[in-house]
Amino acid sequence: MQTEKKMRNIWFFVGWILLLIGLVELSAGVYNLYFPSDADIKLINLHANIWWGVIIIIAGIVYLIKNWNKHIDV
């Protein structure tokens, strides 16, 4: 039987997953600037992967900062 008493807040993990996914998406967007995709994608000129990636990164950072040291007693 494990004896852990403090559990990490779920919002902390939400922050991490959003940050990581946002970073990969942004990287893909930057990569596409130099090596454009040849797939038939509409509105490709909007570079949605860049600005949507940035929005997801910001959301992730906000969740991480707000929940960095928060734990739940169990």
């Binding site: 996914i21 967007g29 949507w52």
Partner: peptide, 14 residues
């Protein structure tokens, strides 16, 4: 498939 480019496609499929 119509709108999502590289990276965004990964988010869409996920």
């Amino acid at each position: 498939r119509r709108y999502f480019n590289t990276g965004l496609m990964g988010v869409g499929v996920t």
